[in-house]
Design a binder for these strands. Structure first.
Lengths: 193, 193
DNA sequence: GCAGGCGCTGACCGATCGGTCAGGATACTC
DNA sequence: GAGTATCCTGACCGATCGGTCAGCGCCTGC
């Protein structure tokens, strides 16, 4: 067995707790999920959970962090490409794939976002989402156009998220993915300058 | 002053509590809103709230009941008209107006629905929504078509609901209303038989 | 005057919340 | 073997949760 330099098991437990917590937060909400429930589901004691993550909010932050990180990268790529190119085709695919990859995190931020506005990671995520919206909104002066964009993005996000999070897999991910890309592209395309 | 036959003040207090509770449930979530907070906001004691509504869930039920009632009527009108007429134009307007009238209730059901699936009134509402979806879905065999419908309805609902519920009024309700009707109609029309 | 119902309240209940703390168990270093 | 750091735990804390209950003041009917 190869050498494990430092902190092997710790990362495993941390990742395990993050995953379980993410799923339970998505299913029952942040306020509706207690540390005791998370600990029971993971097979640890509540104290042990608080040993790895100093507080409930810290665990919540750690669970959502990867999604927010990637959302930030997505925002950067948008800004970069929108200045060099006036077409928006590629962004739709990236957006849908981002949602697909972080379904649970998206579910939490979308459904509990404004309830948890005092939590740091949620505020960050909502700020990023706002900036993404603004990036797309550039050149869309009329409310009608903005609402069209809103329906496209929010509709796609909500459709993906609406299925109960306990049902892990959508019937046919590839099919859903393509259908979403199609309809969102159709809604967004006429908005190009 | 005209005669008030029975229970005048009681209805006022009940309606007042329902309204305050509806707003607070929408803002902070069901689990995130305590009876004490509702009582404080209404200027009563927690005991008094529990006097009018026997339990927290009972108050929640009473707050959401009117919206669910009207949603049920909407479902009936859909079924009735869809069998007599093959056009879907009028339903979009009715749907948007229903959302506009019960914004807070829609916000709660949409954002906290699957979290509160064990509460009666929420289950009722979600059942109605499912049946409305099925009514529209008739004749839409492919997942692509269903997703298109889902994006339209969910997108419209979420856009209307996405603004923080504390911000009571949208900038221009009429404008938003027309824009939503337009885009939803556009998405739904090609789905007609 | 008085009996009784109604609206409302504070005191109180057990349960659960997030979080602290001292210490047990294991394993690695010297 | 002694010392030490890591992982984990049960006991415990104050606060808050939803809910119960006896009793308050007040109005009404008799």
């Amino acid at each position: 067995m190869p050498i494990q330099p430092i902190a092997r098991v710790q990362n495993d437990v941390g990742a395990e707790l993050r995953g379980i917590a993410l799923q339970m937060f998505a299913e029952n909400g942040y306020a509706g999920t207690s540390l005791q429930q998370i600990a029971d589901a993971a097979g640890y004691s509540k104290s042990s959970v608080l040993y790895h993550f100093g507080s409930k909010e810290s665990l919540f932050d750690a669970a959502l962090r990867p999604a927010v990180e990637q959302l930030s990268l997505f925002l950067d790529s948008i800004v970069e490409k929108l200045t060099a190119d006036d077409r928006r085709d590629g962004f739709v695919t990236e957006f849908i794939d981002l949602l697909l990859e972080h379904r649970l995190a998206a579910h939490i931020i979308i459904n509990q976002g404004q309830t948890l506005s005092d939590i740091v990671v949620v505020d960050e995520a909502r700020g990023l989402i706002d900036r993404i919206g603004e990036s797309f909104m550039v050149g869309l002066p009329t409310p009608a156009q903005r609402i069209r964009l809103g329906v496209a993005l929010a509709g796609a996000a909500y459709v993906m998220v609406a299925s109960r999070p306990s049902v892990a897999e959508i019937e046919d991910v590839a099919e859903v993915r393509e259908a979403l890309i199609d309809v969102v592209t159709e809604l967004i395309t006429p908005l190009s300058r």
